[in-house]
Amino acid sequence: MKKSLLLILFILVFQSCSKSNKVENVEHAFYYWKSDNWRLSENEKKIIDSQNVSKLYVKFFEVEHNDLMGNIPVSKNNLSIYSKENYSIIPCVYIRNEVFLKSKKEELDILADNIIFLINKKKEEHLRDVEEINEIQMDCDWTLKSKENYFYFLTKLKQIYKKKISCTLRLYPYKYPEKMGIPPVDKATLMCYNLINPLEDKSKNSILDTNELSKYLNKNRKYPLHLDIALPVYSWMQLFQNNEFTKVIYTDFEKIKPILKPVKPLWFEVTKDITIADVYLRIGDKIKYDEITAKEIKKAIEIIKKNVNFDKQTTISLFHLDEEQLKQYSNEEISSFYSLFTE
């Protein structure tokens, strides 16, 4: 009798623990990361509507360091957003790590002021019909050497903005918070992709390798910030000519694949001279095709669910909204990338 009671008690406790880590409400989101003048295509609008997207994380501009001019915005987008859509716009700013390696505190004070000014200016110029913006997100691959300056900048930004500030979080600082610190923001988005340097390890999928992903996750530790999740919904082809990396190809995969001969896992050889997407492919060129299939994404989701402690409500973002890249997934598959987190 005692053994039966103990068993029932164990099951109830286990179920309680399991439920406490379950996401009850998933907010559907996309990143939009194009670096030119843009307007959502009709297909992209249909994707947003069909997937009940409530947030769009939009790269407003990037910041890089120039030895003569200091920290300057580059790759600005001239946004063209549509009147009163049913989703929130979250401005994102990508800041190169060198900004924090080469800047003094006084320069970071100025940078924080300039970023808020420029975000507000772009909203007034291009997003007049969009409701008030209540969150901005900073994106930076900070390192141990840049951590102090980056965190100082985030603190300064919070003092000026006085609304919600989030940041992206790569897997290395997520795994080693004692070493890399906890960014002083309201919440973080864990970027579950781009785990491997594509030019250093050419044998693995550099966008998403689930074995590599598992190494960074720890089910026994809860990160001290609210965590959202970002997953990749894009693929790329890395072109090597004369055994030297030439460029990354993001489009026209279906036109390129028929002229490729497999040589080893992930690697192909070009069998025909052809020009596609302004790229001249020659016989003998090598291509590494890092393809992200729905099956791989679902596998990654299962790993994340088992090894990350979530709050009841979490935003799941797909990177990124691009009709060309999203052709490889059905509407049902895209929908499952969100819904699997609540199952």
Rank of each mutant, 00 (worst) to 15 (best):
L227I: 15
D201G: 01
Q159R: 03
E148L: 00
E244C: 02
F240W: 14
T251R: 12
K257S: 11
K162N: 09
N134P: 04
D273L: 02
L171Y: 05
P177C: 02
Y152A: 02
L40F: 15
T168M: 01
I334Q: 08
L6Y: 10
V74I: 15
E244F: 08
K45D: 06
N86W: 08
K175T: 00
Q15Y: 14
S54I: 11
I89E: 09
N331T: 08
F240H: 13
I287Q: 05
S88D: 15
R128G: 14
D139A: 04
Q15A: 15
K286D: 11
M69C: 09
N66S: 15
H320F: 11
T210S: 13
E85S: 13
Y176T: 01
N71I: 13
K145I: 03
N309K: 12
R282W: 05
E324P: 04
Y57H: 13
E291P: 05
N37T: 12
I276Q: 06
N97W: 02
L118W: 11
D139Y: 00
I276P: 04
L157Y: 00
N114V: 05
F268S: 07
S339V: 00
I8F: 14
V248S: 13
K255V: 07
K55T: 10
K298L: 15
D252V: 02
L56V: 14
D201K: 03
G181Q: 05
Q238R: 13
Y161P: 06
E324T: 09
K121C: 09
K312F: 02
Y150D: 06
F319S: 06
